[in-house]
Design a protein around this nucleic acid. Sequence first.
DNA 1: GATCCACAGGAAATAGTGGCTT
DNA 2: AAGCCACTATTTCCTGTGGATC
Length: 410
Amino acid sequence: MFERENKIYKKRKVLQNEYQPEEFLGRKNEIQKYKSHLKPVINGWQPNNIFIYGKTGVGKTAVTRYMLKHLEKDAQKYDDLNLNTIFLNCEGLNSSYQVTGSLVNKYRKPENKINLKGYDSRKLYEMLFQEIEKTGGTQIIVLDEIDHIQKDDSIFYQLTRARENNEITESHIGIIGISNDFSFRDTLSPKVKSSLCEKELQFPAYDAYELKKILVQRSEKAFYNTEKTSENKINSEIISGAVLDLCAAYGAKDSGDARQALDLLMESADIAVDKKSDAVKEEHVEKGKIELKRGRIEEGIAGLTMHGHIVLYTLLTLERDNETPVRTRDIRPRYTAISKKVGEEPISPRRMRDRLGELAMVGVADVTEKNLGSRGGSFREYSLNMSDELVLEALKKTELSDFLKGRKEI
DNA sequence: GATCCACAGGAAATAGTGGCTT
DNA sequence: AAGCCACTATTTCCTGTGGATC
């Protein structure tokens, strides 16, 4: 029943997000600056706090991991240097409280982990400082996706001022904050901003040429019968330069995102394998783009709340009735009706607006702002952004599936 | 340029969940 | 068990917005 038929991949892993290349192309300047910012650490001095920003897929996290790996390795050469690095992704953590608790858990063994509820904030900080002091030496704390921390910035104050507030005496801490939202910096209170953003490092987007170089570098390792002939050219029986150009253009299109380009390359190659093709062709890339989009949307839809799903379904039925684009207040009655059919109490209009906004955010709906002045004021109009079949498929994988099965046709 | 429209979206209040401390 | 704590999801209330119209 199962059989290996892959003629494409030598090593698929090379295209995955976790893969760490030994050389980062197009990031020479950034690595150079990063290195100088981290220099004090190796001297055993108080580390700099570093704020790193740049769009998604420009290597912020990967380069950081790479730098820290080297830093740790080189630190071992010096007996008087005790270096410990902590890496925390703040996705899903929206308060200082949760970050503090998560940091405590990073230090602790699985059996001693704490809950992220119930403690007094002060107590939580004490626990963190205790852990830090127990470890001692120099500690680099990396907070990735730091902009998810929205509610308050006390964690930064506590960490950057821990020493002068005598919370810690045995250890030195340096914070590396990573954000893809530069404006986050300006939401910080002034005293936190100046200390947290002591050193700043901006990662620019990759252009198509740089992305091509990256794709060439990875392709050589990932595919059979492929070799690099110059920095941006390959000779390959599996994959053509034109295919790589397509992937590079896709990544460069909106944000210079290497991850997007690599994802597309992998998706295309997966499709080629699936089709038992001998090579990755341009048509596979086109299919790949559609697949990636579908995946993103499905993921987005899966992440919505139940009422988000109901609102989406409402929009879907309006779309099928050719009533889109439709303004918020015209969505309302049908939403209320459908909600009741599903057996749920409808949420308030205010809340429904939030849900609609999320649909637009996820990319499944389009919004247009309208303003008819004194003849009708301003409002937003929504319509589905993609085929209704696709949306319906995604909705069937949610808690609405039973409800949807019960209806023969929309 | 003042007025008006109708909603967007911020802010505060409330309800309910679940964990910690004593 | 009572009194904390923070969380999420929500409702209620209300101010702000920007173009059309006068």
